[in-house]
Amino acid sequence: MTVKEILTLGARTVYYNKKFVILFWGMNAAGALILTLPIYYILADNLNNSILGYKLLNEYDFSWLLQIKFLYAKNIGQFPYLLYVLTGIYLLVQNFFVGGLIAVFHNPQKNHIVDFFYGGVKYWLRLTRLLLIVLVLFYLAFKLNDIFGNLITWYYAGVENAMGDFLTRSFRYVFLLFLIGVLMIFSDYTKISLVVNDRTKVLKELLEVIKLTSVNFYKIFTVFVIVALIGGLGAVVYNLLGILIPAKPYYYLILLFVLRQMLIIFRLLIKMLFYSTEILIYKDLTAKVINVQPEEKEVIT
């Protein structure tokens, strides 16, 4: 399959299964809501009876932001932990949805909600095992990034070349993003492999996928980057439209809220596009080659 065919068919698959985005969106919205509530209560406590609230609707007040960080330091200090715990739960629930989504994408005839949930239940445990392995790989990638960073700091501590330092650090940054991309590709394709082939040996599948992707890296990575760029395009459009929405009066914020939810839904659709294109590529690359050479047979007349 060509890249163009993959993207077209992938987009078509997402379009036919667009209803599932509601589940992803619902989960995302609920997760963000849980995390927003503590912040909302802090803001309500601080601003609901204050004239400052009105001022903040019209202009920034960085002094106030510093104060709120100081006044609610204990609550805000606990926020990252809450975020990490909720992210953990989010990932576990997402595994459930992803299992269902890949099952449905793999078998387009079965695009009912029932099939989706059946797939989710069936593959959840193996996808969760994979998640644990991938988290270890992410940890190693960040550790490698740390070591790389320390090396750069050590080297440039005695070198009068700020541009060199900047470029090396930028390269490190890009390299980290590349590593994250590669790990996401490994993770996605292993999920696909586990579901498509209905296999349970996670580590073995992961190693198979690494082999497969390294052999077909160009094609796989090209599609990955193109889909990511389409996603980036959404952010650009959002920012361009966002500028057009006036900051006041404050009810324009409702319009901004709608626009933001459109961006979130778009990003989730892009996530689905990643899976759909990856399934197509995976199936294409792992398809058995059947010898279709016509054989001449003696015709008995």
């Binding site: 995302n28 919205a29 997760g31 963000a32 995390l35 927003t36 975020l83 992210t87 989010y90 990932l91 997402q94 998640l131 991938v134 988290l135 992410f138 790990l183 996401m184 993770s187 809220f257 933001r260 979130i264 990003r267 989730l268 996530k271």
Partner: peptide, 13 residues
Amino acid sequence: FWLQNALINFGGI
């Protein structure tokens, strides 16, 4: 909104 984006980023794992 910032949290929704953060969750999508984390969810990419």
